[in-house]
């Protein structure tokens, strides 16, 4: 049994880590800014958000194609269950973030431009209530995702420095 994630899975993991942290930082910044770069960051946030949505789908397909290292055998059943749940949640949030982001733009009648290459359609009639549902959802999901990422990182460090097992190394 290989005790490391495959190269493709490691690349996906770290690339998407950088991408998600950037998207979350950009999101937090742009909703609090009146500076001239605000609409530039907003445009990049949308473009890279669409890219992240595409990447997470490819990543999930890739995950099902590859073997995943077993969790350390000395973990309790409860700890294993929590570890698995946190990973399922991370994937769920990675899908829900771009979907809610796109739907809020769709309901507000704002076509999403992707890297000046093409545009995603928006509704021809604006629905302010649907906008509100997805706008608030997008904001709350972002906060939970940030908390989940912190938990994920702390758990990895705990495995490495406290339990001194192979979990963090398997992703390096």
């Amino acid at each position: 049994m290989n005790n490391r994630f495959s190269l493709s899975m490691r690349i996906f993991h770290w690339a998407m880590a950088a991408l998600l942290i950037s998207l979350l930082s950009a999101g937090l910044l742009m909703v609090q800014s009146l500076e001239p770069w605000q609409i530039t960051i907003l445009g990049l946030h949308k473009s890279f958000g669409v890219l992240a949505a595409i990447l997470v789908i490819i990543r999930l397909l890739n995950r099902f194609r590859n073997m995943v290292p077993d969790l350390p055998s000395d973990l309790s059943a409860l700890q294993k269950a929590i570890a698995r749940l946190s990973h399922v949640l991370l994937y769920g949030f990675m899908l829900a973030m771009p979907i809610s982001g796109y739907l809020m733009q769709y309901a507000a009648g704002r076509p999403v431009e992707v890297f000046s290459l093409f545009r995603l359609p928006a509704s021809l009639s604006v629905d302010i209530q649907t906008y509100s549902i997805f706008r608030e959802l997008h904001g709350w999901l972002a906060l939970f995702l940030m908390a989940l990422i912190c938990l994920h990182a702390v758990a990895a460090l705990h495995h490495h420095f406290v339990r001194k097992d192979n979990v963090l190394k398997s992703m390096l």
Binding site: I11, A18, L19, S22, A26, L34, E35
Partner: peptide, 29 residues
């Protein structure tokens, strides 16, 4: 791939460099 990593480093840095002394949309509204 490099672009993504670069942005991963650059965007959070822009975030940290922001001065909170400027008027925000929340204050404005």
């Amino acid at each position: 791939m490099k672009t993504i990593f670069m942005l991963g480093l650059v965007l959070p840095c822009i975030a940290l460099a922001q001065q909170p002394s400027k008027v925000t949309p929340q204050q404005f509204v």
